[in-house]
Write a protein that binds this DNA or RNA. Structure first.
Lengths: 338, 338
DNA sequence: CGTAATCGTCGACACGTGTCGACAACATAC
DNA sequence: GTATGTTGTCGACACGTGTCGACGATTACG
């Protein structure tokens, strides 16, 4: 395999000149650089990464804690990871993944000391996350996908719950809806889901009020069965609603299925709008669900970019970012019945 | 950060003794090793990986081509990846992921030359896969998850289609079924799905015959709608079947939903058995689907173990492995109606 | 007791790169 | 003309580890 010395010899320059020609840290005559690049091409040279790291070069790798699979059928995590990988690649970084285990944190700290890792991307953030504390203590740069209430000073990418709620409320209002129901999930202990759900619920509360929508919040869990119960509960009430916002995938799906089974037409009798969902991406629900999608890939991409910006600390950068995602209007929402 | 020299000084031995005490490549007096290990502990020393690689040590990392997300809702890929990561970790290897792009292959070749990668895990194998050719040409060790018809001499982990078919056929026969239908997918061009589906179809053909099951093969695609069509087609026929094997997730789901909507009871009127599915893992289908699950994590785990075995080439090892996965009996299959 | 083999340890070197200081050539300013 | 940068290049060294050859100490064996 070709080394810097080989390139230097072929280009008839010194070894250090080759380095500078390649990394641009000192000025090199254009003609010389040409010669070097030609030689690089001819020898198919690429710098030995380990040697570079050892010699004090900054590592070009980022660690990613790979989520433990939670058991729902969401492709969310896959998209996060893909966003991170693509983002890293576009900036010439590599991604090293770790399983999400207790020991991993300690190992990453060591790996960082080894010089192979520049920073870390975390997902599935929990309240009082031990990893967060460990990385902060060791001063290892990290960015979170998601956040907790105590994340004020940390770097993260998260959903813009308020914006999503606003988009949703606005959409329904624009269709003439006045009374709606919101299908929420009951608080789950020690999970990232807690805050996500609470935040969404609060945001929806805020924006439905703001837009003058009467919203009824139903609490269940994220399952098909729960979706069916929502439907039953809703239609035995006297004062009916004309639209429903579902905050969880399975419950929303269950609701739609129950409605169809009961002969209730969507959207002519009731509109259904999904938030925080991946459902629309697949042909799983009928009619196709109008939703505000989770911009998962973008979030992953953004996270890794924030991290790399920090590493290069070229200037002051964004350290916290909220992404809403777009409303995709499909077949499940329509004009409110008169 | 502590280096080997620091450890050596504290343990009052030479630097090389520290190395040998840690890697066991030369015999060291037990008492000396103790001293070294104590010093390592005290200084929280861990070897600088990049330096090790540079000095000729074998890299302890494996590359994984991260699948491009195909758009179905399967968590299959997530499980593969998790299996690979866990397996690698249990053998003290790290996993570096690449997006599945044309350029990645070339980059991995370079990375390998850089000495940071020992081998590669491939998934989503296609016929005439360029990556396979490239790695074979460059003599980079790799293991595939999945295979093609021309994989005879390559290393891979794949599903044991025959065994799965046998399990399925046996289960239905044991419940007294005589006539069944099989829901298959039409050939898709240039995708890993081709061979998987063909292999399953052939295997099912073989074992239904072997067990004396009359099987009717219906061809559609993997969608809810297609599942509905299957149902319609099946029930307008004169000679009815008592059980159905679904080879794809969405079609199977569509079939079950259509049956329920039509008031056909599962399993008392018709049994449904899913192969090659992740469906049962989630509360998405009702009644719960009896299935032979894809042992995706095990496959990932196995693949990385085959790779690492090869790298260590301690002896002759398994180079090809077929995994069936277990039959999980749920609520969707029962005795054939008389 | 003498010789050979083995054990345990040490010192030295190579691996390939990043980067600092030095220095010649050249441009700029007065 | 001299004094003062600026540009372009080179040589040298450090980074931390794996491992080879050497060598004294110990053991085995006749």
């Amino acid at each position: 395999m070709a080394t810097r010395a080989d390139v230097a010899k072929l280009a008839e320059v010194s070894a250090s000149t080759v380095s500078y020609a390649l990394n641009g840290k000192r000025s090199i005559k254009a003609e010389t650089r040409e010669r070097v690049l030609d030689a690089v091409e001819k020898l198919n040279y690429s710098p030995h990464i380990a040697a570079g790291v050892l010699a004090g070069g900054k590592p070009k790798s980022v660690a990613l804690i790979f989520p433990s699979y939670g058991g729902n059928f969401s492709s969310l995590h896959l998209d996060y990871v893909q966003g991170v990988i693509d983002g890293a690649k576009s900036r010439n970084y590599h991604v090293i993944v770790w399983p999400q285990e207790e020991v991993s944190t300690q190992e990453i700290v060591q790996f960082k000391k080894s010089g192979l890792i520049a920073g870390v991307i975390l997902m599935e953030i929990m309240e009082n996350d031990k990893r967060v504390k460990a990385f902060a203590k060791e001063k290892i740069p990290f960015v979170m996908i998601g956040r907790t209430n105590s994340s004020k000073t940390l770097k993260y990418v998260d959903r813009d719950f308020e914006k999503v709620a606003e988009i949703a409320a606005e959409h329904l209002v624009s269709l003439g809806h006045k009374k709606i129901a919101v299908l929420t999930q009951k608080r789950m202990v020690e999970s990232t889901v807690i805050s996500v759900d609470e935040r969404f619920t609060q945001a929806v509360k805020k924006y439905t009020e703001k837009f003058g929508l009467a919203a009824d919040f139903l609490v269940g869990d994220n399952s098909i069965a729960s979706g069916g119960s929502f439907f039953v509960e809703l239609f035995k009430r006297p004062k009916k609603v004309s639209a429903v916002i579902g905050l969880t995938d399975l419950a929303t799906l269950g609701f739609v299925n129950a409605a169809r089974a009961a002969g209730i037409s969507i959207p002519s009798e009731i509109s259904v709008l999904g938030l925080n969902t991946q459902l629309g991406q697949i042909d799983l629900i009928s009619p196709a669900l109008t939703s505000v999608y989770v911009p998962a890939k973008e979030m992953g991409n953004s996270a890794v970019n924030i991290l790399i910006d920090e590493l290069n600390e070229e200037s002051v950068h964004i350290t916290q970012q909220l992404l809403a995602g777009h409303l995709v209007v499909a077949k499940s929402t329509g004009q409110a019945p008169k």
